[in-house]
């Protein structure tokens, strides 16, 4: 009996993975049918590549070299040097990995909190819904910047994970609300009603019937959260809430700004991380738009 059960379990598992592989392949085929997705994905992969291998190829030397300060771009220093004679190009490269880390962690935190609370709120409804909604209201109505300023006076964030946590604290609420609305509308659909008539379990209804329907939305929002994280992290660096990391793009911009923009060379230094940020933004924008086009059934032309 037990053995039979076990083999049955094994076969179910096998089917599950087979289906998963099959679905994954179909899924990949589907999402990469859009040019925007491909371009966005490739660009982000380039950033990941830079983040991992960049520092190995162009190691960053923290030591100052005042004699060579404010050098213009040359073959030796692609982006020139800063006010302490450090190579700006290598600085930017070294900052990539931390920027990606923050973006990635923020996206994970935001999406996880937002999705779980959104689904609970939308599906359970009633008092639970009211409580969760009032929490989101608090986070949506208190502006993040003054709080960052206040916090900056008290603590300094060390790791990118804690930085990501702070950023996601102010970005999950919107996602949570929109997922709640979607779940509430899906819950009333005919196919969910049929599930209830057929006595399917709540687990089945939430994870097998509702989740796949909001998955595309979650995927798009993952990318959107990454994009927002970059903006927010630059803001946090500017405020000084996060630890000073001379290689972080936000920190470079901040430092250059502090040196005084009257000196055009400081503006020049600022431009490089800005351009990197803009390219990263564009690639995430492309990726999220592309995903939205291929995954969102409402945009699909029948």
């Amino acid at each position: 009996m037990n053995k039979e059960k076990f083999s049955d379990f094994l076969s179910t598992l096998k089917i599950f993975f087979k289906n998963l592989g099959h679905n994954l392949l179909n899924f990949l085929k589907k999402i990469f049918s859009s040019k925007k997705t491909i371009i966005g994905f490739v660009l982000i992969m380039v950033f990941v590549f830079i983040g991992i291998f960049g520092p190995l190829i162009f190691p960053y030397d923290q030591n100052t070299d005042v004699a060579n300060k404010y050098l213009l771009p040359s073959t030796e220093h692609f982006f020139g040097t800063d006010w302490l004679g450090r190579d700006v190009f290598r600085q930017v490269i070294a900052g990539t990995s931390s920027v990606l880390e923050i973006a990635f962690f923020t996206a994970i935190f935001t999406v996880t909190i937002g999705t779980i609370l959104g689904i609970i709120s939308g599906y359970v409804g009633g008092v639970v819904d009211k409580i969760i909604m009032s929490i989101t209201n608090i986070f949506l109505s208190i502006p993040s910047f003054p709080v960052y300023l206040l916090l900056a006076a008290l603590i300094t964030l060390e790791s990118s994970v804690s930085l990501a946590l702070i950023i996601s604290l102010w970005s999950w609420a919107g996602l949570c609300r929109s997922i709640r609305v979607q779940v509430m509308s899906i819950k009333e659909r005919d196919y969910i009603q049929i599930c209830k008539v057929m006595h399917m379990s709540t687990f089945h209804i939430i994870f097998r019937e509702i989740m796949p329907n909001v998955f595309s939305y979650i995927a798009v929002n993952f990318v959107v959260a990454m994009r927002n994280a970059i903006m927010a992290s630059v803001g946090i660096m500017l405020v000084g809430l996060a630890a000073y990391d001379p290689t972080n793009w936000g920190a470079i911009i901040n430092a250059a700004r502090m040196k005084g923009l009257v000196n055009y060379k400081n503006i020049l230094i600022m431009i490089y991380p800005l351009v990197f940020i803009i390219i990263f933004q564009i690639s995430t924008l492309l990726l999220s738009n592309g995903l939205d086009e291929t995954l969102n059934p409402r945009l699909k032309v029948k």
Binding site: D190, I194, R208, E209, N213
Partner: peptide, 26 residues
């Protein structure tokens, strides 16, 4: 129960097989 709108009565992201399999297994 059989509903009026056959499109709305089937989960758009699940295959016909999945839609038929789950209730029987359940």
């Amino acid at each position: 129960f059989i509903q009026q709108d056959s499109y709305a009565a089937l989960n758009p992201v699940r295959t016909i097989y999945q839609s038929l399999y789950a209730p029987i297994k359940n």
